[in-house]
Amino acid sequence: MTIAAMIGKPGKPIPGTTLFDGEAARKGYALNAMCYSFNEAANRQAFLADEEGYCARYRLTPGQRRAVAERDVLGMIAAGGNIYYLAKLAGIFGLNVQDVGAMQTGMSVAAFKQMLLDQA
């Protein structure tokens, strides 16, 4: 996609972008709260030991639970996840922001990294 297509037109929706606003923050509260808990190493361990139980404890919605189970980042965002909190979940799986970028754009990690380098 060209940069002009990625920017879009003033006043119109921003291509490929969801603003994390009040509506998203309400919808995503449980998921983001769970991810925020991952600041503590013990909570990361607890999630790894019993993912189902840990998600249940934070009362994830069925859509949030499904997105987490499927490691579906766009699904998590659609369910109200905010990327700063989701990054803590990604860290548990050893994924960095290039891995997460690749997952969201449908590119391989190598292709995503190359796309970043190509903007130099």
């Binding site: 972008t17 969801t18 766009l74 990054a87 969201q104 970043l116």
Partner: peptide
């Protein structure tokens, strides 16, 4: 920079 969404990886030098 943009970390999230289908536009992840977006930068804008201009």
């Amino acid at each position: 920079h943009q970390l999230d969404g289908e536009r992840a990886g977006f930068m804008n030098r201009e």
